[in-house]
Design a protein around this nucleic acid. Structure first.
Lengths: 224, 224
DNA sequence: TATATAAGTTAGATGAGTCTAACAAATAAA
DNA sequence: TTTATTTGTTAGACTCATCTAACTTATATA
């Protein structure tokens, strides 16, 4: 059985690769940054995971998950997202509170436990942040999505998630009137300072590119 | 914040002292045995806990919990028992499956989480094994109880818990027809081999003293 | 292409929690 | 009260996950 730490490295690698549209790999520094450890620390652990055949990497090269490593990472991610959903749906946790506790709960070792939580929640497909929950078979069907920053002016789209899960950001999202499943329209872009004018429920706001690139949306006209 | 391990030592010390009617103390070997570690290991940790003022002990003497240590131990015990109740009541876990998973869940750090689980369960007083759940204020009101071994011949009593939580034992308990809140009568004791004849729901069985001392009961005539 | 910067690695150290083996103190038994 | 047994302690070693500081390789840019 893997340690909490090993599981976290696998999950980090999966999460980094999920955010990349093109390649399924991540560098040592990226992984270290994701986990808030120094590159030297990550380097040691990556060696260990390679030895256990959970990742592939060559010296001075990037890391990728093996089939086995991917399977485990998906299980951890599934647990994380199911726990988030549980906390949100059943225990009155707010959107921005769930992540921290789920980071702990995702490491509980009990297949029965997580399957029963899944059943209790009626087999949800998305967590409170709009992220896809891998199913019990380790499959993860991700719809066609992009960020608010990438959306065209005049288009209307649906918010389905966020990239940044910090409380600070989530509270800011609330303030603008945004939330999962809300319709949002791009009104204009300011040449001068790059601010993007959006409209949610008839309320207009201006947001920065940094904000926009952390909001995940499905374009109304996107092919699914 | 304390580590999982430190919490486990405090809980072990509390559990040992709870089972002793007379004294609130435990020896190094007892604690080591409870946690499945060697005495040398326990000795090191007890030193550390003493330094943190969570336990009292003198060289070659027994250990006791300080006020602060007792408070923490009760919190861990409360979490353990609430999680057991949750697993049993909400997630279809059986009586003998809950302990192992609760051992993991009891270390999750989130006051809100455990208070919400408490609310979801409607503030229960007893866990599925019949043990008292300490309340949110760290108080634990224990009714007057003894073991089946201590009960007099001819007396009738109610089973309220077990001391041994191993699957092996719990399955044995089931087999005899015993369960929480069942009435059980002591019919006789065999001089020759010390077996105790009991009756549950009209069904008679013979059990060993070892079995009987692991069944906790409240005598029908006990002063409460 | 030469060099500066970024990315990755190595070596050596630390603290937590565990072990074994040898030893010391306390307690029970003869 | 002496001895045997149980209980507790110490010393030294190991693994895991982390760090810092110095070093090497790869990549980007001038």
């Amino acid at each position: 059985m893997l340690s909490f730490t090993e599981e976290n490295y696998l999950k980090a690698l999966l999460q980094i690769t999920l955010e990349k549209v093109d390649k399924d790999e991540a560098g040592t520094n990226e992984i270290a940054a994701q986990l808030n450890v120094k590159p030297a620390t990550a380097n040691d652990m990556l060696k260990k995971l390679k030895q256990k055949k959970l990742i592939n990497n060559e010296k001075y090269g990037k890391s990728t998950l093996t089939m086995e490593g991917n399977k485990i990472a998906l299980e951890v991610l599934r647990k994380h997202r199911l726990w988030e959903t549980f906390l949100y749906e059943k225990l009155k946790f707010t959107w921005d509170e769930v992540h921290e506790v789920a980071e702990q709960l995702e490491h509980i070792q009990s297949k029965k436990l997580i399957d029963e939580i899944d059943r209790l929640l009626n087999y949800p497909s998305f967590d409170p942040h709009g992220d896809v929950i891998p199913n019990a078979n380790g499959e993860m069907i991700v719809p066609n999505r992009k960020t608010l920053l990438e959306e065209k002016i005049g288009h209307s789209c649906k918010m389905v998630g966020v990239k940044d899960n910090s409380s600070t950001f989530l509270q800011y999202v609330d303030k603008v009137g945004l939330a999962i499943n809300k319709q949002v329209k791009i009104l204009s872009r300011q040449e001068f300072d790059e601010l993007i004018e959006i409209e949610v429920d008839g309320k207009k706001s201006s947001v920065s590119p940094k904000f926009a690139e952390n909001i995940i949306i499905i374009c109304d006209k996107c092919p699914q």
